[in-house]
């Protein structure tokens, strides 16, 4: 078993949202849950999820490789995804990303040598009014990210 019983309970809760025989519908949620627990989606993890849901592993792989919040390679403990799309860019999204790059000493799609931070360039997160916007580990949105707030966030994450 590569996932904890608690995570598998959450799998079952997701599966229960769909009609009997349509458990495959839960694949996105289950992959997200597996990634939350394990940090990234290895082929073994994807196959485990596929088998759990009774679908072909390649079908789960299609899903995992299609949606860009799934990580098919290991990432740092803190993945920071910055939106640089046009509305955000007009209000400093690119500058916020540059500031993060400078502070962390890495570029997009890179991880700090201590394995703590990975930086990603994101596409529209549907929060353009909050620009600059970034996501921490996919599930926490940080809005209005001035340099001061970025400093605060990094300091907070550094401690974790």
């Amino acid at each position: 078993m590569i996932l904890t019983p608690e995570t598998l309970q959450e799998f079952d809760r997701e599966i229960a949202k769909y009609p009997a025989g349509e458990q495959r519908s839960a694949v996105m949620a289950c992959l997200a849950l597996a990634q939350r627990e394990l940090g990234w989606l290895s082929p073994e993890t994807i196959e485990f999820v596929a088998n759990y849901l009774g679908m072909a592993p390649i079908a789960a792989w299609e899903v995992a490789s299609f949606y860009n919040m799934y990580d098919l390679a290991p990432v740092g403990r803190h993945k920071i995804t910055v939106c640089t799309n046009l509305p955000c860019a007009l209000s400093g999204g690119v500058h916020a990303a540059e500031y993060l790059k400078k502070k962390l000493g890495i570029g997009f799609d890179e991880t700090t040598p201590d394995g703590k931070f990975t930086l990603k360039e994101g596409e529209c997160m549907g929060a353009c009014g909050d620009a600059p916007v970034l996501l921490h580990n996919n599930h926490r949105m940080c809005s209005f990210m001035t340099k001061e707030r970025i400093d605060q966030l990094l300091a907070e994450l550094e401690k974790q």
């Binding site: 072909a56 390649i58 299609f66």
Partner: peptide, 20 residues
């Protein structure tokens, strides 16, 4: 009868592949 191939990734990077 068995999905052995898929079209993974998306857009211009989409490619036909088997599972790992």
């Amino acid at each position: 009868g068995l999905m052995e191939l898929g079209q993974a990734f998306r857009g211009e990077r989409a490619e036909i592949m088997s599972f790992v």
